[in-house]
Deep mutational scan, measured.
Amino acid sequence: LNLKQAKEEAIKELVDAGIAEKYIKLIANAKTVEGVWTLKDEILTFTV
């Protein structure tokens, strides 16, 4: 999975969960695949 694909998957998951745009922007700015997954997990843990 490359960075672009990771971001697309994570953003789709966050949108489906009804997460606010400000958190989705954090994913869009992530620099690594690991960073994308870590941010996604943290956002889902603390906002859902």
Rank of each mutant, 00 (worst) to 15 (best):
L1I: 11
L1K: 11
L1N: 10
L1C: 10
L1E: 09
L1G: 08
N2I: 12
N2H: 12
N2R: 14
N2S: 14
N2C: 09
N2W: 11
N2M: 14
N2D: 12
L3E: 00
L3R: 01
L3W: 02
L3F: 03
L3Y: 02
K4F: 08
K4R: 12
K4G: 06
K4E: 13
K4W: 11
Q5S: 07
Q5I: 11
Q5L: 11
Q5H: 09
Q5V: 08
Q5P: 01
Q5A: 10
Q5N: 08
Q5R: 12
A6Y: 03
A6E: 03
A6S: 05
A6H: 04
A6N: 03
K7H: 03
K7D: 00
K7A: 04
K7M: 13
K7P: 00
K7L: 06
K7T: 03
E8T: 08
E8M: 12
E8D: 09
E8G: 05
E8F: 08
E8C: 11
E9R: 14
E9Q: 15
E9C: 11
E9N: 08
A10D: 00
A10T: 04
I11Q: 04
I11W: 05
I11L: 05
K12F: 04
E13Q: 13
E13W: 10
E13C: 13
E13R: 05
E13L: 12
L14N: 00
L14H: 01
L14E: 00
L14Q: 00
L14M: 05
V15E: 09
V15I: 15
D16E: 14
D16Y: 11
D16W: 09
D16C: 11
D16I: 11
D16F: 12
D16K: 15
A17K: 12
A17E: 04
A17P: 01
A17S: 06
A17L: 13
G18V: 02
G18H: 05
G18T: 02
G18D: 04
I19D: 01
I19V: 15
I19P: 00
I19A: 11
I19Q: 02
A20Q: 09
A20L: 08
A20E: 12
E21Q: 09
E21K: 09
E21A: 11
K22C: 13
K22M: 10
K22H: 13
Y23I: 04
Y23E: 02
Y23L: 06
Y23A: 02
Y23F: 12
I24R: 05
I24M: 06
I24W: 15
I24D: 01
I24G: 03
I24T: 06
I24Q: 06
I24H: 07
K25C: 10
K25I: 13
K25S: 10
K25W: 10
K25P: 03
K25R: 13
L26D: 03
L26C: 10
L26K: 05
L26M: 11
L26T: 04
L26I: 07
I27K: 00
A28T: 09
A28S: 10
A28Y: 15
A28R: 14
A28Q: 14
A28F: 13
N29D: 12
N29P: 02
N29G: 10
N29Y: 13
N29F: 14
N29M: 13
A30K: 03
A30I: 05
A30M: 09
A30Q: 08
A30L: 06
A30H: 02
K31Q: 13
K31T: 14
K31D: 11
K31H: 08
K31S: 13
T32A: 02
T32R: 02
T32Y: 03
V33R: 03
V33S: 03
V33H: 03
V33Q: 03
V33I: 11
E34H: 07
E34P: 05
E34N: 06
E34C: 09
E34Q: 09
E34F: 07
G35R: 14
G35M: 15
G35P: 00
G35Q: 15
G35Y: 11
V36F: 02
V36R: 00
V36E: 00
V36Q: 01
V36C: 02
V36A: 02
W37D: 05
W37E: 06
W37M: 12
W37G: 05
W37H: 08
T38C: 14
T38R: 15
L39V: 06
L39F: 04
L39A: 04
K40A: 06
K40L: 15
K40Y: 13
K40Q: 05
D41K: 12
D41L: 12
D41W: 14
D41S: 10
D41E: 12
D41A: 13
D41N: 15
D41F: 12
E42Q: 14
E42W: 15
E42F: 15
E42A: 14
E42Y: 15
E42M: 15
I43F: 07
I43N: 00
I43Y: 05
L44T: 04
L44F: 07
L44G: 02
T45M: 14
T45H: 14
T45L: 13
T45N: 14
T45W: 13
T45S: 15
T45I: 09
F46S: 09
F46Q: 09
T47V: 15
T47Y: 15
V48H: 14
V48N: 13
V48W: 08
V48A: 14
V48Q: 13
V48L: 12
